[in-house]
Design a protein around this nucleic acid. Structure first.
Length: 485
RNA sequence: GGCGACGUAGCCAAGUGGUAAGGCAGGGCUCUGCAAAAGCCUUAUUCGUCGGUUCGAUUCCGACCGUCGCCUCCA
């Protein structure tokens, strides 16, 4: 079966074919690093991460570039976002950038978002940007006014093709402010003249200045991926103008298409309104991680389709946390059972049919993911697998080690490698050997109390362990424990 | 005003021209010292409203109502 993806450029579900056979070249618009990332970023980047993971799972070699915007992106007041943050915190602008680059990467690492091959920064590509801007002027696509350079949207009939905008519509739109220097209201800055406040500045043929927001993505994507490349990802809020500006300037400069497929993630909302810094209704990823596990946040994001907007709520996150725990409990039980089995035991033939029926889960999962990364259906397949696993483990039938490890492999591949909702240290009980020995001593003690029917003392141990994040479960015969998610 | 998306049980969320996946929450039962975990059963005559096409529509078409996003701050 073929992988089909929804391409925002054509608004159609298309069969996905990379330009270069096995290699997929992908660019994703990264964050402006002037603050901690919030759950909206988590939604977009977890969604894109699953795209990367699934492509890899399917045998493609993904070459992934995601930028950091560290200059040129201004607030609605016109002030550069990085300078604004640096001024408020009394830091050098690049110091601020370093802090939030590290913060972002730490958050993404915790969420299990795989790092891209390259994370280029705009400020490191000023020479390339200047070369591009000069070329665009020479080709009649851009013009200089008082040290700033603007892209002329009228020079390209294709402008607005991703966001489906027509120039007349833009002129009719109410909020468009005409900057006196621009020839057309939709013209956008490639290079901005630096005023005295602007400390992030570079010499250029047009005087001291700094790059505009959109040009970096075109320049860096072209530099590291070549053009055209396969996939351009990001969030829907950037369709217009950012993505359209990227396309128009890149195609004017390169004379070939920019990106073949555009995959854009829907926004995260809070009570129906978009979660964003300007509305002040955001929850940072690090704050969210105090309340929910990384797997719960991923589970929440993946429980709706990546293109759909998702409403954040405590109930939704709680439900996701429960769903993730449910999955983890089943896998934990499974692995416990595998450890109990002696390698020679249970090599019976009864398992053969089981194993082949288990492969249908893989096929169902793959069919769901092939259908434009339908993660809600993929999660439903995993839920079915969890139920079947639990039933098997609870039942009285002997299950072979082969069957157990086949199921474990399914969970590792699908829940672990593709969706990233199985923690790597699931079977590791605690932080180290000492914790393990202490807990097992306490459990021995509790067993003694239970045998003596001193329930109060036995329950007190359970409660204290609960308080430090260790859950215990009395099974038939023995008591097991694990760190709570 | 322009462009686009969406409205499915208490909540979240898939889906199909042939009679509604899955999750969470709720209810009942089993297991258990209690708990936790797990299992079994149970929870939408119905898919925003009204028309149309059809043997048959939640799914296609039209109108209407409602919600949301973008239209140069945003992942």
């Amino acid at each position: 079966m073929a992988l089909k993806v929804y391409n925002y450029l054509t608004h159609e579900l298309e069969r996905f074919r990379p330009i270069d056979g096995e290699i997929v070249r992908m660019y994703v618009c990264g964050p402006t690093v002037s603050d901690h990332a919030h759950l909206g970023h988590a939604k977009t980047y977890v969604a894109m991460d699953v795209v990367v993971r699934y492509l890899s799972h399917r045998g493609f070699q993904v070459y992934h570039v995601r930028n950091f915007t560290d200059v040129g992106h201004s607030l609605d007041t016109g002030e550069d976002r990085i300078l604004h943050g640096a001024r408020r915190q009394g830091l050098n602008p690049m110091e601020l950038v370093d802090i939030y680059v590290r913060s972002f990467l730490a958050d993404m690492d915790t969420l299990g978002v795989q790092r891209p091959n390259i994370s280029p920064r705009a400020a490191c590509h000023v020479p390339e940007i200047i070369t591009w801007v000069r070329a665009l002027i020479e080709q009649g696509h851009a013009y200089e006014v008082a040290g700033s350079v603007y892209f002329s949207v009228a020079s390209s009939p294709d402008y607005g093709k991703l966001g489906r905008r027509q120039l007349p519509d833009l002129q009719a739109g109410a909020p468009v402010q005409m900057c006196a220097e621009k020839r057309h209201p939709a013209d956008f800055a490639l290079w901005k003249a630096a005023d005295s406040e602007q400390t992030l500045r570079w010499p250029s043929p047009w005087g001291e200045g700094y790059p505009g927001w959109h040009i970096e993505c075109s320049v860096m994507a072209t530099k590291y991926l070549g053009v055209p490349f396969d996939i351009h990802g990001g969030g829907v809020e950037n369709i217009f103008p950012h993505n359209d500006c990227e396309i128009v300037q890149a195609e004017a400069h390169n004379h070939v298409p920019f990106a073949n497929t555009w995959l854009l993630a829907g926004s995260l909302r809070v009570n129906g309104a978009k979660m964003s810094k300007s509305l002040g209704n955001f929850l940072t990823i690090r704050d969210a991680l105090h309340l929910y596990s990384p797997e719960a946040i991923r589970y929440f994001v993946l429980s709706s389709h990546y293109r759909a907007p998702v409403d954040f709520s405590r109930d939704a996150l709680k439900a996701a946390q429960r769903g993730a725990n449910h999955l983890h409990a089943a896998v934990r039980q499974l692995r416990r059972r595998m450890q109990e089995k002696l390698p020679t035991e249970g090599a019976g033939t009864a398992a053969l049919s089981d194993v082949s029926s288990l492969e249908t889960y893989r096929a169902r999962f793959r069919a769901a993911m092939d259908d434009d990364f339908n993660t809600p259906v993929a999660l439903a397949v995993l839920s079915d697998l969890v139920s079947e696993t639990n039933r098997m483990l609870d039942g009285s039938l002997l299950v072979s080690l082969g069957t157990l490890s086949t199921i474990d492999k399914l969970f590792r591949d699908l829940a672990g490698d593709v969706l990233g909702i199985l923690p790597r240290n699931l079977e590791m009980q605690g932080d180290g050997q000492m914790v393990g020995e202490l807990v097992s001593y306490l459990l021995d003690l509790r067993t003694e109390f239970r045998d003596a029917q001193e329930w109060g003392r036995a329950d007190a141990i359970r409660e204290r362990l609960e308080q430090v994040g260790i859950a215990i479960e009395d099974g038939p015969g023995d008591t097991t424990w694990h760190m709570k998610g």
